[in-house]
Design a protein around this nucleic acid. Structure first.
Length: 245
DNA sequence: TGGAATGTTGGAAC
DNA sequence: CGTTCCAACATTCC
């Protein structure tokens, strides 16, 4: 479920709930009493990277799907929802195995949507500035930094680095300006490619690097390792992805 | 079938 | 007090 493009799909699918009044709420969420949502109107639905935000007059709820979270719109599944919301016109949204929290108004106001690679207000210049401010950061860590590339996950990380031919252990500060620019631009571009493929149920077959064993460009075996401070899986080609350091 | 994975947090350890 | 490390969470797939 995770990664920004999937949240973008949820945002599209749930758009008709905006303006609706919540008439019933439930679920096994512990951090929040679902009853507090009853009677609230959904003012807006936002995504920021992997966060889904339900904005209501008296509270804002943040849903994060972590690794295994799922959701259903206008139907349920064979699990107890973490949070279930039913609105006046009969529609419902159900969220499973996710983190559900109320966030305070100040936290909500502080969201910087221009850091979201899927956002129409995405600010590539700001992303480059943040990268230049941390020259020692590894490329594989940079892409997963949600304050720089909100919404990018491990799949997008591997695909972006392969596309731009940059080794995951490259140092951000060592990247030539055009490469730095390509890193930022491709983070967004690949996210939208991901979105289209995901909608068509053909995402996996378009992977060139993630979970692959052979480099499709030069046919040698990929390297696979848990790299960087995040220790997430990296799949990369030692021959065609250059290591800048 | 056990292990690993599209992720993050919170608390322990240093 | 700052940072780093690791367990915990929870589901699906191979």
């Amino acid at each position: 479920m995770p990664e920004g493009p999937s949240l973008y799909i949820l945002k599209e699918q749930s758009a008709r709930f905006i303006g609706q009044e919540i008439v019933h709420a439930g679920g096994n969420v512990r951090a929040l009493d679902p009853q507090r949502l009853v009677g609230q109107r959904i003012l807006k639905l936002h995504t920021w990277g992997k966060h889904f935000l339900i904005e209501m007059p008296d509270l804002v709820v943040r849903i994060h799907f972590l690794l295994f979270g799922t959701y259903r719109i206008d139907e349920d599944r064979d699990k107890v929802p973490r949070l279930s919301v039913k609105v006046a016109d009969g529609g419902e949204m159900n969220f499973y195995a996710c983190s559900v929290k109320e966030i305070d108004r100040a936290t909500f106001e502080a969201y910087d949507f221009s850091a979201d690679v899927m956002s129409e207000t995405w600010d590539p210049k700001s992303a480059r500035k943040k990268l230049r401010a941390e020259p020692g950061m590894l490329a594989c860590d940079a892409l997963l930094d949600q304050d720089i590339f909100s919404g990018v996950g491990n799949i997008i990380k591997n695909e972006v680095l392969f596309r731009i031919r940059v080794h995951p252990l490259s140092t951000v500060g060592a990247l030539p300006a055009p490469k730095l620019r390509a890193l930022v631009d491709e983070a967004r571009q690949y996210s939208f490619d991901f979105l289209e493929w995901k909608k068509q149920w053909v995402l996996k077959q378009h992977w060139l690097a993630h979970a692959k064993t052979i480099c499709p460009r030069c046919d040698i075996p990929f390297s696979k390792a848990k790299l960087g401070k995040t220790q997430r899986r990296s799949f990369y080609c030692e021959r065609c992805q250059k290591r800048y350091e």
